[in-house]
Amino acid sequence: MAARGDATRDKLLDATIRLVREVGYTQTTTRAIAQAAGVAEGTLYRHYPDKAGLFVAAIGRQSGPAVAWARDLPTRAGTGTVTGNLTDCLTRLATLRADIVPFELAMLTDPELARAATAAHAAEPGPPEFLAQYLHAEQQLGRVRADVDPGKVAVVLLATLFGLAVPPPQAIGALGDSWPDIADAVVIVIEGIGTTPSAN
C-alpha cells in the first residue's frame, strides 16, 4: 500500500512539473494535474491538502539534488578558489531554472503559494543560508573581505542567478555578446570592477 501511495505521489509530482513547464502555473489546475497523472482528482487531495501543498512538494522534488550539493558548500571553504566554488554552486543551481523559475514566478503572484512555500521551508535552511555559511567560513580563512556581509552577498548572487534565468528578450538583443553567463556574474560580484586586483 505504501509503495502504491509513493507511486501515485510520483505521478502527481511529475504531472505538476510537466504541466507548469508547458502551460504555466495559473493554467495548471488540480483537475488537469490529476488527469495528466491518470488518477481521480479526489486522489490528489488524499496525498496533498491543496494545490499549494502539491506545488511546494514539486518545488522540493525538483530542487532536491542541487540543494543537497549546496548544503555541503561550507565544507569546501579553503579549497579551490572562492570564485570557482561559487561558480560551481550557481551553475548547479542554474540547472533548475527550466523547472523552478515558473514556480518562483508563481509565488510572486499567488500569496497562498508563497505562504505555503515559506512555511514548508521555515525550519530548514536553503541555498541563501548555505551560501552565507560558505562565505562566512571563507571570511574566517581570510579569503573573503572581513567587512562584507555574507548574507547580503548570498542574496545578491542568487538574485543575479534569477535575473540571468529570466532575462528580458530586449536586453539580450541589445547587449549581444556582452550578455553575461554565470561565471561572468560571479567574477563581477566577487572581484568587483575596481582597479585593485583581487586575490580570489
Rank of each mutant, 00 (worst) to 15 (best):
A132W: 00
R18P: 01
I17P: 00
D88Q: 14
Y134Q: 06
L12W: 06
V20L: 05
Q170E: 08
G163L: 01
V67D: 01
Y45N: 09
G176N: 13
S178E: 13
A199M: 08
I188N: 15
S63W: 03
G151P: 10
T83D: 12
P111Q: 08
V166T: 14
D72Y: 03
P127S: 05
R21P: 02
D72I: 02
L158R: 10
A183D: 15
N200S: 14
P128R: 11
G151R: 12
T91W: 03
P127L: 03
L161F: 12
A40L: 07
G142A: 05
A68Y: 02
L86G: 07
Q170K: 10
E191I: 02
V20R: 00
F130N: 10
Q140R: 15
G64D: 11
L175H: 12
A36T: 02
D14T: 12
K51I: 06
C89I: 00
E191W: 03
G192V: 07
D72P: 05
G142Q: 09
V82M: 09
E112Q: 07
L157H: 01
T43G: 13
A7F: 01
L73S: 09
T83P: 11
E112T: 10
R21F: 02
N85Q: 14
R61F: 03
G173W: 04
V187Q: 15
A120G: 10
P49Y: 03
G5M: 04
A123H: 11
A114R: 14
L164E: 06
A199K: 13
V56S: 05
F130K: 07
R18E: 11
M107I: 00
G84N: 14
I182G: 00
A57H: 09
S198E: 06
R92E: 08
A3H: 11
V39S: 05
T118Y: 04
I182T: 06
W69A: 12
G80D: 11
T16P: 03
I182Y: 00
L96V: 00
F103S: 00
A98G: 15
R97P: 02
I172K: 15
Y25W: 13
R4Y: 10
P65W: 00
A70K: 01
I100N: 01
D10L: 09
F162W: 08
K11G: 03
T81S: 14
R145G: 12
P180E: 01
R46F: 09
A57G: 08
R21N: 12
I17G: 00
G142W: 01
D177E: 14
A15L: 07
R4Q: 15
L54T: 00
M1A: 15
G151C: 12
V155C: 08
T95F: 02
E22M: 03
G84A: 14
K152D: 12
F103Y: 15
L19C: 08
A137C: 15
N85D: 13
Y48E: 02
G151N: 14
A7W: 09
D6V: 04
V82G: 06
Q27F: 07
G176E: 12
M1T: 14
D110G: 04
S63Q: 09
D147H: 07
E138P: 08
L175W: 11
T30G: 05
R76W: 05
L54S: 00
G38E: 10
L12R: 05
L54N: 00
T30I: 07
T91A: 02
L73W: 05
